[in-house]
Design a binder for these strands. Structure first.
Lengths: 348, 348
DNA sequence: TTTAGCACTCCTTTTCCCGGAGTGCTAAAG
DNA sequence: CTTTAGCACTCCGGGAAAAGGAGTGCTAAA
């Protein structure tokens, strides 16, 4: 059976009322909501159809109807009106985007808190690299005969450095040569390639130098690996406790510890700039009873971030989606500005 | 009235039973626990005394007794037997101390998770610096005429670096002079002193150089300030939900959001290596109904860390205290090892 | 000082009952 | 064929009452 316009409208009303009240909604209330143009009996007939078609559910006979995941899906795909944010709201988003630029992971934490506060649900934020990171340049600075400083510039123009402590004394005048070696053989390659080369030069250099090189390479590998990891940060998990569906401590606990622990398992890959996953559409068991709205943003050219919101299936999808995409756009813009300066050559 | 030995023993039994069951404990149960040497009626008389003296409380007449904060305090101070950890337990602690040494804040996060898992309560970890941090040495490396790398070694032998982008072109051969300037005037001083000096040299150097210097100083100030901040990280907050006293979602929510937000307000300063704060002894309103066990550990010579556990007043103080101090000692040892190498001059 | 006995208190759980909201069906009306 | 009114029926939720039980406090005797 095709969905008549009236059925669609009824479904819409049901979803929106249920989202608001968290109570099953009855035929009378729907009739009222629709302006009294039809009677509750008519609505009842339609409801019965919609239930049969799987868009609505009843907790028990003689209770009102609530949307099934399928119903939410239809609502999100076709019925939901994209919500325009008020000026005040946009302003609020921009304000929460006044993030202090520090280390990436702190920034993520700030962003997570901001989003969570904005939508009043728990949120998570992550960033991951699109392309492989490599070292572009090495430098070695002498401190004394047992210590020197390793400075590396990575392919994304970030600089990292570390104090190297040497087991064997090294003549400070040897350092430039060592740096040259590093620059000629260990740049623009992944950690695997580095240790490869390290083996190759093992018997061509003095033992002191070799120790130094291997320390340098191991630090470089650490840096590259760590930067390559996807960093996930969650915020606002305790907001769950405010929701009637998580009044049950066990349920709340399950989801909250999932959020706290799962660094990898949160909904991640996605094709469109924003995706909505409703209840059982989630792969992870712990999220089967919840919905997730997740959007992506760009960090410069070479990293991508995810920003997601977790809530009950009864979620105000329109509101969350609007705010989330606003925030994601803001983040992209923010990082765009930051990144504009660095690796490019000229600017007028 | 003085506390007879028997009263003390009864108090001990009450505390321990209540900790175990979270239910008010009655005279009969106590009599049984004490081996049946006295009857429940006798116990009742004693209980009545203890209640009058403020060591015990009754939720209502005709309910069993539970310890008051005063009762817990006496228990902790005098009755509690320091718990010896089993070998297996010690092993477990050492195992969770296999923390991967990364950035300090990640290490804290790891430690927090480990402690929380160990004691099964939420935990928090922090680190703060005892002495003022300064820059010991600056270096500047040329990248191209508009970019150079600033490398700083701080007074705790950590190395930090940053890419500086210059508005005005600077001749790379000027950099050593600039570095000299930095080293002679901006080392071993706090951020305040730095900007002071910056003003002084303003009209003695070229504008290009001045811009460069001010960028360097501002980065240095950032680094020093950030490193000086006390970093707090919480873990395992969701464990609260498992406890009967936080079955009530509102109560749980209050405490959990407090834990999530309060970076500064968690019990901190302390005189002894370990402190136990019971219920109302906590200053913060949100902690009035909870107890906190907090221990300190050393990070090298110049930083100190705090590690705390938050739980209901009905907490197994002996167990938590034993594990926590074990963990704190382990951390001190861990950092001791790490720090042994660096700033010292010679080693045999 | 300890103990047994007993009445009494107060919480908790269970049961029962009732009201209300909502459905589904039928039959009549448009 | 669709819409509507009417009505019996279902089921939940809340409240009152009842039953049960754990524990106390007191008294009187050992």
């Amino acid at each position: 059976m095709e969905l008549s316009d009236r059925k669609r409208q009824i479904l819409k009303v049901v979803v929106e009322a249920y989202v608001r009240t968290a109570e099953p909604v009855g035929s009378k209330a729907i009739a009222a909501e629709m302006g009294g143009s039809v009677s509750s009996a008519t609505i009842r007939n339609e409801l019965s159809d919609l239930t049969e078609m799987g868009y609505l559910e009843q907790p028990h006979t003689s209770a009102g109807r609530m949307p099934s995941p399928k119903g939410y899906r239809l609502y999100v795909n076709e019925l939901m009106e994209a919500q325009r944010l008020s000026l005040a709201e946009t302003e609020k988003i921009n304000q929460s985007l006044q993030l202090k630029m520090e280390e990436l992971d702190r920034l993520l934490a700030q962003a997570g808190r901001a989003v969570s506060a904005l939508v009043r649900y728990p949120a998570y934020v992550s960033a991951s690299r699109k392309t492989e990171l490599t070292v572009r340049r090495f430098e070695l600075l002498a401190v004394d005969e047992r210590n020197c400083i390793l400075v590396m510039m990575t392919s994304d123009s970030k600089v990292k450095s570390q104090l190297l402590r040497m087991q064997l004394k090294v003549d400070p005048t040897d350092l430039p040569a060592a740096a040259n070696l590093l620059n000629s053989h260990f740049t623009n390659t992944d950690p695997g390639g580095m240790s490869q080369h390290l083996m190759n030069v093992a018997d061509q250099v003095s033992p002191q130098l070799f120790l130094l090189l291997s320390q340098a390479v191991s630090f470089a590998a650490d840096v590259l690996e760590e930067a390559g990891q996807r960093e996930i940060v969650t915020a606002g998990a305790s907001r769950l406790l405010k929701l009637p569906e998580f009044r049950d401590a066990d349920k709340a606990h399950e989801l909250m510890s999932f959020l706290a622990d799962s660094k990898e398992d949160l909904p991640q890959p996605m094709h469109r700039p924003m995706e909505i996953l409703i209840g059982p559409e989630n792969v992870k068991e712990a999220l089967k009873d919840t919905s997730v709205v997740v959007a992506s943003y760009d960090i410069g050219d070479d990293m991508r971030g995810l920003i997601g919101v977790v809530g009950p299936t009864r979620m105000d999808y329109a509101a969350v989606a609007a705010r989330l995409s606003g925030f994601a756009e803001g983040l992209t813009r923010l990082f765009g500005k930051q990144e504009e300066l660095p690796p490019k050559e000229e600017r007028k």
